[in-house]
């Protein structure tokens, strides 16, 4: 077994002095498909935000390819694709224009690649539609098209199945599984039961602070 790509080492997170969870240890080698679960407020989104580097960790460390992400932010972000529950699709722009600017923040994308990715998310022919005309589900699909454009190794997907229809969910699951098979890592949260066969689970309920220990 090779060195794990992503390591959470004794990770603790707090919000405004309140400890959300502590002592999370997790090693993700290439090919990991991991669902983060826990009750509402257990800190699922906080965990995902912390391991992308959006939030500072209260204690512990996150390592990517053996080095702390704090020491190599730029390299780490080149290999990261993050989709949160907000939808950064500008209504004034067309679908293609949106994917162009989103893409420019990471690897450069070509117009052909965008056309292909839109076929994958059932938005073929929508390149030039203004985004304000799209439905909520279609806007999410524009975001999901990034999965086909990105060259990132680590996918962090916060509630990716929101507002997606059944067929879309199945397709998305297959895409996530394939990314893991090809040596990537997918971390995600979801409130829906999944049809996927194999994936690991990280249950944050097990890392909650004992009553009276939440404030240190």
């Amino acid at each position: 077994m090779s060195e794990p790509l992503l390591t959470l080492d004794n990770l603790s997170c707090e919000r405004d002095g309140r400890l959300l969870f502590s002592g999370v240890d997790c090693e993700c080698p290439a090919g990991t498909l991991l669902q983060v679960v826990g009750f509402n407020g257990a800190g699922k989104t906080t965990l995902l935000n912390t391991l992308t580097g959006l939030l500072p960790a209260a204690k512990g460390d996150i390592r990517w390819r053996g080095d702390s992400i704090r020491s190599q932010r730029q390299v780490f972000h080149q290999e990261l694709l993050y989709l949160g529950h907000q939808v950064p699709v500008k209504p004034q722009l067309t679908v293609r224009e949106n994917l162009l600017w989103l893409g420019a923040l990471n690897p450069p994308v070509t117009k052909d690649a965008i056309a292909e990715a839109l076929v994958q998310v059932d938005l073929a022919g929508f390149e030039h539609s203004p985004s304000f005309a799209l439905s909520a589900g279609q806007k999410r699909r524009v975001l999901l098209a990034q999965l086909y454009l990105s060259r990132a190794t680590l996918w962090v997907l916060d509630e990716p199945f929101t507002a997606i229809d059944k067929a879309g969910v199945l397709k998305l699951e297959a895409t996530m599984a394939r990314h893991a098979e090809q040596g990537g890592i997918v971390l995600f949260t979801s409130h829906q039961p999944l049809a996927m066969a194999e994936f690991a689970v990280l249950d944050l309920s097990q890392f909650q602070p004992a009553p009276g220990e939440a404030y240190v």
Binding site: G53, Q74, Y82, H85, P88, L102, L105
Partner: peptide, 10 residues
């Protein structure tokens, strides 16, 4: 959420 994408980009 564009801001998050700005911050998480290289």
């Amino acid at each position: 959420g564009s801001l998050t994408q700005f911050i998480l980009s290289p």
